[in-house]
Structures are given as C-alpha cells and as structure tokens.
Write a protein that binds this DNA or RNA. Structure first.
Lengths: 160, 160
DNA sequence: ACAGGTTAGTTGGAAAATCCAACCGACTCG
DNA sequence: CGAGTCGGTTGGATTTTCCAACTAACCTGT
C-alpha cells in the first residue's frame, strides 16, 4: 500500500488529479469528449448521444474550448454552423476514457445492455497500464505522490 | 480516426463509460478515492484533503460504499468510529487516476504549484496504455465501440 | 470533576448548477 | 410556401452543492 500522507494542517491537496478534474470532471465533459473520440462532432448529435441538455452542453463545450481541449470549427459559412473537434490535448484524454471503460466493464456489470469497447485490433477492451520508465505494470498502490511542481510557461507546444 | 457512429434516432448512448461515470463521475468521488489510494482513510482527513463539504462527502462515501467501491470499516467500538477503505474494485480505479494525473501534468501546467505523481519505481508518472491482446500501445482513436453487452450475474466474485 | 479536544457525522438555509421545453435565426429542400 | 435542419438561447423549476454551526460520544489533561 502506501504510508498515510500527513497534510497535518488544512488546505485541500493541490495535485494534478484535482487540476485535471477541474476541466474534465464537470458533468457531461467526458461524455462529450467520448463522442468526439468516436467521430461525432455536431452539437445536435453530441447532445443526443450524451443526454446533456443543450444549454449546459453549450457551456461545457465553451469551457473545454477555452481550456484548449477542443476546437470549435466552422464548417458552413451560410448559415454559420460549427462543429467540435479534439485538439491534441483532447485526443490524449483517450487513456482516461479507456481506463474508465475498462473499469466499468469489469465492475459495473448488470442486466442493462451497454455498448462495450474494443481496441482497434479487434480485441475486447483490456488495457494494461505500465510505467514508461521501468516497464513494470502499475499495480494498485503503485501510484505515489511526487514533489510539488509549478511550471509557468512549460506548455507542450501551445496546442493544436 | 473513426467513422461517425450513427445512433440515427434519439436515446443517449448507454455505454460503459457512461455507466462508470454514474458512480465515479459525481463531484468529489474520485478525489475521495485518490485519498484512500494514498493511504488516507479517515473522514476528517478525506474532507480536509479533498475540500469537499462534510455533508456531501458523507453522501458520496455512502454511494461509493453501496456500489461496492469502498468499505466502511469500524476501527473503534466506543465511541463507534469508522474509516473508509478501497475494495478490490476501488483499488482498480487506480489506472483512471493515473491517466488523469498524467494527462493533467502534461496539459494543465501553469504557475500554481501542484503535487505531481510518480510510479513506485521512483520515476515521474509516465504511464503507457497498451492492449493486453495485441500488445500495441493505445493511440488516440484506437478506442472503438464494441457490441452491446448485458451481463446479469457475471460479476467478478461478488466483491470483498 | 470539568474544560477542552477529537471524530464522524447531521442540520438548515443560501447559493450555484442543472434540467426542460419552448423558442429563435438563418438558412435549405420539396 | 411550409416543413425541416442546425446551433444555439431563454425563463423558470428542480436538484445539487456549499457553508457554518451543531451534535453525540467519547478521551485526556489539570
């Protein structure tokens, strides 16, 4: 396991998980990104396929755009029409969706029929997460806190 | 990429990602699980470290418990005191936290100092997600829809 | 004995987020 | 001309969350 981390005093833990959830953790955000990863880019279809109400979906898409996760692309001049595409950052959300889908298909099995996922090789979804450094598979408990990082202007190529 | 999936008609896509978010997507749920993965098991500390208000946190922990993700364990008889532990299912949320932390530390870099994560081997967090079947690394776009699955009573050992 | 601290909550009321159905503008198609 | 498409916006109801205070049941030190 892990020895308890004693934040003895008070303030919430500022970590990258919390920061990621700031952007991806709002309602409907991940489902909207799921749609885009599956090739659905139009507002109406995203609304339908996620179940989000149109007004909050509008808000979410604006937030995701402002955070650089998606892009709003005009595909028709007259009338002006837009569709939504993943940026590089958005495309890299895939591992999160994959882990979520894998966890869910292992632990959320019940009578209701759901769409499963698979890898493009054709196999049922069965992802293995390993450390790029040592090659070892991540086991529960092998996630540990590292040092505090503050990285003004170290963004990996300002996007796109 | 992926050819658009035409759910021609109406209903939201019932998939394992949506099902997973049903449980893990509520506010504070993943942060509470993060705390438990880091070895923090007491209500007060979880509340402090996540920033969740105590009433909401109570609700979340109850939901997670009822869904089999965590267990409420009595550690003192008098007065009755409880702490929260991950079940097997809960421990397996780790890959989601890992992917989230990795995405965030790549794309959410700004001036505010945050705790980073690392693998137990000591290396900075740098997870690779690959297909257990073919061994290939998952690339953005290699997540595809599979068939509908309904699996009453196929749970992997009714839990722990 | 009593004040003070710890711990896991609960309570009530305010504030924020979400839901929903209907509407709008600018088109296109038959 | 009427109907349909598409990407929204609007107003009002509902739900969720926030917040600070409070409780119950102890323990610890003076």
């Amino acid at each position: 396991m892990n020895q308890p981390t004693e934040t003895s005093v008070s303030a919430p833990r500022a970590c990258f998980i919390a920061a990621g959830l700031d952007v991806l953790g709002e309602r409907w955000a991940l489902l909207a990104l799921r749609e885009m990863s599956l090739g659905v880019h139009r507002f109406d279809q995203i609304a339908r396929n996620t179940g989000a109400s149109r007004d909050i979906l509008t808000g979410r898409l604006r937030t995701l755009e402002s955070r650089g996760v998606i892009e709003r692309v005009q595909y028709s001049e007259r009338p002006p029409r837009y569709e939504y595409h993943l940026t590089t950052s958005g495309a890299e959300v895939a591992p999160i969706l994959i882990s979520l889908a894998a966890w869910s298909s292992t632990w959320m099995r019940d009578e209701t029929p759901r769409a499963s996922y698979r890898h493009s090789c054709g196999a049922d979804l069965n992802p293995v997460v390993s450390c790029a450094e040592c090659g070892e598979e991540f086991t529960p408990g092998s996630l540990m806190l590292g040092p505090l990082v503050s990285t003004a202007g170290t963004d990996p190529a300002s996007d796109q």
